[in-house]
Amino acid sequence: MFIDLLKIELFKIFKRPRTFIAFGAIAVIILLVQFALKVNGKDFVQFYTDSQADTFDIPYEKILNGYFVCVAVLHMILIHVPLLVALIAGDMISGEAGLGTLRLIAGKPVTRTQLILAKFSASTVYVILLLVWMAVFALLGSMLIFGTEDLVVFRETDMHIMKSGDVLWRFFAAFVFAALALTTIAAMALMFSVFSENSLGPIVATVCVVIVFTIVQQLRVPVFEETVNPWSFTTHMLGWKGFFYVDKNAEGATIAGSVENPGSLVRSGLILTGYIVLFLLISIRGFNKKDILS
């Protein structure tokens, strides 16, 4: 029965035009970034390497390769994708309430827990497909347009170089982690959706929560750094970047296949999973207790 429910939810998602707006928006943004970097890529790399241009010969053309562009694209768009996820997940229950179909499906011989889990699973599938779409455009597209080379990742205080043969698995892991992060957003939007009768409220609420926590995170003031940030999901949602931070040996050379402080990634993954479970439990409890009056 659950599989049937999931199929129904996916069918409904992919029959709605708004679903494809997200896919279209992602494709357009990626193509714009790729075009910009194709034309002004050197300036972009220079921005990161300017302070070192006197000390080192910077191989700008090599740095500006498909992997680098993909990381840049992900860096630019993954922060905005929660909005696209919220558009779908925030509409899951409240959208049905607004449409008047919630009373029809809730009066069917399926439990409300099953309904929530099916809707959550469908949101997760949507997130995964969105990321696969992103991978096709951002990774494969950039590889085709810019070619492949070693990957240089610029952090605020250091830069990490990875051999080209040590990169693809990192993208795969980063996409999986991003899926987990965006699923957290989906679970939160779904939770808000349970307690609302219109679609806009949960979508706006989700985006507001993400913005507020991102600002708190970026403020970097001790009062938040020590209290909120270690547990804020926006802190851990950036975990996908952690797969591009490579570890080094005592002589300073990077270790192929390594990740700097993998324990933190595990911790972030567990915290995000914890949030998903928490949001789901609240959703299930809220939905089971809810009098459907719409």
Binding site: S51, Q52, D54, H75, R220, N229, L238, E260
Partner: peptide, 19 residues
Amino acid sequence: NTRDYKLPKGVTIDYDNGS
């Protein structure tokens, strides 16, 4: 000799892995 390397805050929005 090397020069200091530090990007402006908020440009890279790093993941804090404790390192």
